[in-house]
Amino acid sequence: MRIDLTGRTALVTGSSQGIGLAVARGLASAGAAVVLCARSEDRLRAAAEGIDGEVGGGVRWVAADITTADGTARLVQEVPEVDVLVNNLGIFGAADPFAIDDDEWRRYFETNVLTAVRLTRHYLPGMAERGWGRVQYVSSDSAVVTPAEMIHYGVTKTALLGVHRGFAKAVAGTGVTVNSVLAGPTHTGGVEEFVRQLVPGDLPWEEAQRRFVREHRPQSLLQRLIEPEEIANMCCYLASPLASATTGAAVRVDGGYVDAIVP
């Protein structure tokens, strides 16, 4: 299969590092004109230069805090239309469930859910009018298997499944698809820090990640952390014309973590 996104514009949020950066690189490799978005200008510049150096394509970037309405307004002013929207921005972290106060719950919902809702509300109608578009939400296995050490994160990822399904129905029959990607435990900088929180001692990274998966994610059939590029491969497929019949779906790239025989 050849994924060709030539002539399409793709916006990826939280794309200066980790999964978002891998998705942006993959979309650019497929020919899309990619727009990166995150808060740090320095990281965005470095990410854009890295992608340009690897695949070319003149990657653009917008530094904006889209957890706020003002930041979102700035982004959509600079990028009024896109063909592909990948809502990747998200935060996570271990916390005592009884110590998570209202403000922290609100922060997680603002970041993990409402940023995606605001951008979908802006870009999706234009896609429907043009008769083609792709909206994705990078969700998590935690949407289905809520982790006891980060309930607030899991609940926000569950919410995204309802968001994607509802918006998919709102544009039924238009040629636009709306899906979520259930990403399993993935090797990113943030996850390395998370693993170090849960796995004591100064173990070498390979040993530490194996112990983390064995002790804290024993359901994984992969028995290792997923690499960001493996998540990006699915996102790029869903962004392509090849995935025209997949919509309203929660597609798993979880290493078999969710113990189910249907998606």
Rank of each mutant, 00 (worst) to 15 (best):
Q219C: 05
V155K: 01
H164A: 14
G71E: 08
E78R: 13
S240V: 02
T177H: 09
D52N: 15
R106H: 14
I51R: 05
D42A: 13
L221G: 08
A24M: 01
P228C: 01
G154F: 01
A10H: 06
S142K: 04
F92P: 00
H152E: 15
I66Q: 02
T115Y: 03
G133S: 06
I19V: 15
W61R: 00
L85I: 12
R60Q: 14
V178R: 00
A232R: 00
Q136D: 03
S40F: 13
P263S: 03
V213M: 14
D102I: 11
P228M: 01
T156C: 00
A239V: 03
V76Y: 07
V138P: 04
R39H: 11
G53M: 10
D4M: 09
G93S: 12
K157F: 11
V155P: 01
L225M: 15
G154P: 00
F109N: 07
V113T: 15
S180L: 06
G58D: 09
C235T: 02
D141F: 13
G31I: 11
N88R: 08
P228E: 04
V34T: 01
R118V: 07
D254G: 01
G26R: 00
L203Q: 08
G154N: 00
V191G: 03
D52R: 06
T115W: 04
A30E: 08
H216A: 08
N87D: 13
L161E: 14
R107V: 10
G248K: 11
A148L: 14
P125F: 07
M127R: 03
R121D: 14
I226S: 07
A33T: 11
L221V: 12
K157M: 08
S240R: 01
R196A: 13
V84F: 12
A10N: 07
D65S: 06
E227V: 02
Y108H: 10
R134W: 02
G154Y: 01
A143D: 09
L44A: 07
E41M: 11
Y257T: 09
R214H: 12
D4E: 12
A30M: 13
A159Y: 04
D141Q: 14
T146F: 04
T6V: 09
R107E: 11
